[in-house]
Computed example of a mutant assay.
Amino acid sequence: MKKIIYLSNGLSKEKYNEIYEKYGEYPKQQMQQYNLSLTKGFGANDGYLVEALSVYPSNSNSLSKLVTLASDEKKSYAHYYYAPYSSNRVLRQILIFIYIFFFILFKSSGETIIISDALNIVSNLALIIASKARKKKSIGILTDLPEFMGLKGATLGLLHKIVASFDAYVFLSEPMNKKINFHNKPYVVVEGQIEECGILGKDSLINEDNKKRNIVYAGSLTISNGVARFIEAFEKCNLTNVELHLYGKGELVSTIDFSKSKNIVYKGQVPSSELKTILKKATLLVNPRPTDQEFVQYSFPSKQMEYMASGTPVLTTHIPSMPDEYLDYVLVIKDESIDGMTRSIIEAMKMTDEQLLILGQKAREFVYKNKIGRVQARKILDMSDRI
Rank of each mutant, 00 (worst) to 15 (best):
K202V: 12
I231R: 05
V242G: 01
K211M: 15
N181K: 13
A233C: 06
D209M: 14
S165R: 05
H160C: 01
K212Y: 14
P186T: 15
E191C: 13
L246P: 07
L159M: 03
E191A: 08
K236R: 14
K179M: 13
N207Q: 03
L246Q: 11
R213Q: 10
E251P: 04
K185G: 08
H160N: 09
G150E: 06
F166S: 02
Y169P: 05
R229I: 13
L239T: 01
S220M: 13
K179N: 06
L244R: 00
G226M: 01
F230P: 00
F230N: 04
D209H: 06
E208M: 14
D203T: 09
T240A: 13
V170M: 07
N238W: 00
Y169E: 11
L158F: 06
L142E: 00
N238Q: 07
D209A: 05
R229G: 10
E196D: 07
L246S: 12
N181V: 04
T155G: 01
N210Q: 03
I223Y: 11
L239F: 08
R229C: 04
E251A: 09
Y169D: 03
S173M: 07
N207H: 08
E196F: 12
E251Y: 01
V253H: 08
T143C: 05
A233L: 00
P146V: 10
F166H: 06
F230T: 01
A168D: 10
I223M: 05
G150S: 12
V227W: 01
V216K: 12
H160I: 01
P175N: 07
N238E: 06
C197E: 15
A233F: 05
K178T: 07
L158C: 09
K249L: 14
K202T: 09
I223G: 12
A218F: 03
G201S: 11
E195G: 15
V242N: 03
K152E: 11
T155F: 09
C197H: 15
V242D: 01
P146Q: 08
A154G: 04
E243R: 09
I194Y: 06
F148D: 10
V216Y: 04
G248N: 06
L156P: 04
G201I: 08
